[in-house]
C-alpha cells in the first residue's frame, strides 16, 4: 500500500448550504503533523516516565540493555522501537532518529538529504524539507532538529564511551528526526 500524498480530502459541508470544500494535505503538512505527535510522545516519555521514575522517584532506572537489566528502554530506544514497529504497517511512511554524533554509527546520516538536513538542524535549529529518490522510490523527506530535552539526555551521551561528543547541554541539538513520506 502506498500513501498517496496530495490526495484530496473532501470535507462535506452538508447542511451548510455551501459547496463541498476541498483541502489538500500537503506532504509537508503531513510530516509536520507526524513530527508533532512523535516529538510530544518522546518528550512525555522522557519527562513523565524516565525522568520521573528514575531520577525523582527512584523506582526503576532506564538502561541501554533494558531487558537484561529489567529496566525501562532509554528514550531514544523507545523512539526507535516505535519506528521499527510502525515500519511494518505504515504503508511506506518511515521515521528515524539520526545524529552527526551517533553512539551507534548505524544512526549517522547516510543520504545527502539526511546530511544536509542534520547540518542545518545543528547549525540553525531549523527543520528542512527536500525531495529524495531512494531505491527507485520518490520520497518527501523532512528533517527536524532533535534537542536534549532533559539533563539525562545530555549526561548519558556525554558519558557514553561510544559517543563522539561529550559536551552536550540541555537544549542543544543532538541530532534530528527524519520523516519520509512516499510520493508519486
Amino acid at each position: 500500500m502506498r500513501i498517496r500524498i496530495a490526495l484530496a480530502v473532501v470535507l462535506s459541508l452538508a447542511g451548510c448550504g455551501k459547496p463541498a470544500a476541498t483541502r489538500a494535505i500537503t506532504p509537508q503538512k503531513m510530516a509536520d503533523a507526524l513530527y508533532a505527535v512523535l516529538a510530544a510522545d518522546r518528550a512525555v516519555y522522557a519527562h513523565e516516565v524516565v525522568e520521573r521514575l528514575q531520577d525523582q522517584e527512584g523506582v526503576i532506572r532506564a538502561s541501554e540493555h533494558y531487558k537484561d537489566d529489567r529496566a525501562l528502554p532509554l528514550p531514544a530506544q523507545m523512539f526507535r522501537l516505535g519506528a521499527e514497529a510502525a515500519r511494518r504497517t505504515s504503508g511506506g511512511v518511515t521515521y528515524s532518529l539520526l545524529s552527526p554524533w551517533p553512539i551507534n554509527t548505524q544512526n549517522a546520516p547516510r543520504t545527502e538529504v539526511e546530511k544536509a538536513g542534520l547540518r542545518r538542524a545543528a547549525e540553525t535549529g531549523q527543520s528542512s524539507y527536500a525531495p529524495e529518490s531512494l531505491g527507485g522510490e520518490r520520497y518527501f523527506t523532512a528533517v527536524y532538529p532533535d534537542k536534549a530535552v532533559s539533563e539525562a539526555c545530555a549526561a548519558c551521551h556525554n558519558a557514553h564511551r561510544d559517543s563522539p561528543r561529550h559536551d552536550f547541554k540541555v537544549g542543544d541539538v543532538m541530532g534530528g528526526v527524519v520523516i519520509r513520506i512516499p510520493v508519486e
Binding site: 521499527e84 515500519r87 528515524s96 547516510r110 531512494l134 519520509r180
Partner: peptide, 20 residues
C-alpha cells in the same frame, strides 16, 4: 532471540542502497 536484523530494520528507505 530479539532478532538483530529484522526485515523491518532493513525496510527503512535509507538502507535502499544496502538492500540493493
Amino acid at each position: 532471540a530479539e532478532d538483530s536484523h529484522p526485515p523491518s530494520k532493513l525496510s527503512d528507505p535509507r538502507n535502499a542502497d544496502r538492500v540493493a
